[in-house]
């Protein structure tokens, strides 16, 4: 009886040990990989001023991240604006406050939904493509070829992608905000019958430029985040096609999760900053 108890206790202790060890390894690996991604971002971004300038490459990637995402941003932006307006209208109707539908939608869109949804959509589209492209270049020795040609692969491949994402994301977020508000306007005025003058007057009254800036700043950070994570995943791909698939998956999933976590942190930081500065 005692032996059986001691045996069970031993097994339980071993189980606790393995859980603790796994937890420790997870935390340890998280900090190691976060650190290495931060170093990767620093090393790539500091090449921005170095010669030769990669203006052509930056513009090419801006076209890929920006222009080719416009249609999808227009679609998602307009429908998000309409859906959000309708839900808020239904809620505010209960308390007879439908006049505030416009500013509430505008605040939600400019501060939160605009940057977050733009970040998620573009990281899935362009980030996935970045990870897959760099991963393929790695496994087919194209990155090695660049290096032996005396071309810095980070300067040629990674830095332009990061800079392009940093510049393009606020522009896309601006488009999202605009089209979402247009969708909201269409639904509220033409379908729900709200007064157009009150709708825009209230928005003007409640929305400050800094609400829009908050969203634009967030989207720039999200752009840099997904470009760094996806480029890092692709750049250090190991193995063949399987490795490329895994790198793409890892890049996109990690970017999306981090964008959502960062959004919460940044919301608080920006609120804190605004409180301090009045």
């Amino acid at each position: 009886m005692l032996n059986s108890f001691l045996e069970k206790r031993e097994k339980f202790n071993q189980f606790l040990d393995s859980v603790a060890l796994d937890l420790w390894n997870t935390v340890y690996n998280f900090f190691i990989s976060t650190g290495s991604i931060a170093i990767f971002m620093y090393e790539s971004l500091k090449l921005f001023g170095s010669k030769p300038k990669r203006t052509d490459e930056i513009i090419r990637h801006m076209e890929f991240i920006g222009n080719k995402s416009v249609l999808i941003i227009l679609l998602t932006g307009s429908f998000t604006g309409m859906a959000l307006s309708y839900q808020i209208y239904l809620g505010f109707q209960l308390v007879n406050a439908t006049n505030l539908v416009g500013p509430t939608v505008a605040l939600g869109i400019t501060r939160e939904l605009g940057p977050v949804l733009t970040g998620l959509i573009v990281s899935a589209r362009a980030g996935g493509a970045m990870a897959a492209r760099l991963g393929t270049m790695r496994v087919s020795e194209q990155i090695d070829a660049l290096e032996v040609m005396g071309v810095d692969p980070k300067q040629y491949l990674v830095m332009p992608r990061m800079v392009a994402a940093l510049i393009t994301m606020p522009l896309l977020c601006g488009i999202f905000d605009f089209i979402a508000m247009l969708g909201s306007h269409l639904l509220c005025i033409n379908v729900l019958g709200l007064d157009e003058a009150i709708f825009w007057d209230k928005i003007q009254l409640w929305i400050n430029p800094r609400d829009i800036n908050e969203g634009l700043i967030k989207s720039a950070v999200f752009g840099l985040t997904f470009a760094t994570i996806c480029s890092n995943a692709g750049y250090f791909t190991k193995g063949g096609a399987k490795g490329v698939g895994e790198a793409t998956n890892k890049g996109v999933v990690n970017s999306m999760v981090l964008i959502i976590i960062l959004n919460f942190i940044m919301t608080n930081l920006i609120r804190f900053y605004y409180t301090l500065t009045g």
């Binding site: 393929t136 270049m137 087919s140 020795e141 194209q142 090695d144 070829a145 032996v148």
Partner: peptide, 12 residues
């Protein structure tokens, strides 16, 4: 150096 890689490693 000039290097010819196993699969040529041309930029696709």
């Amino acid at each position: 150096f000039g290097v010819l890689f196993q699969n040529a490693a041309l930029f696709d």
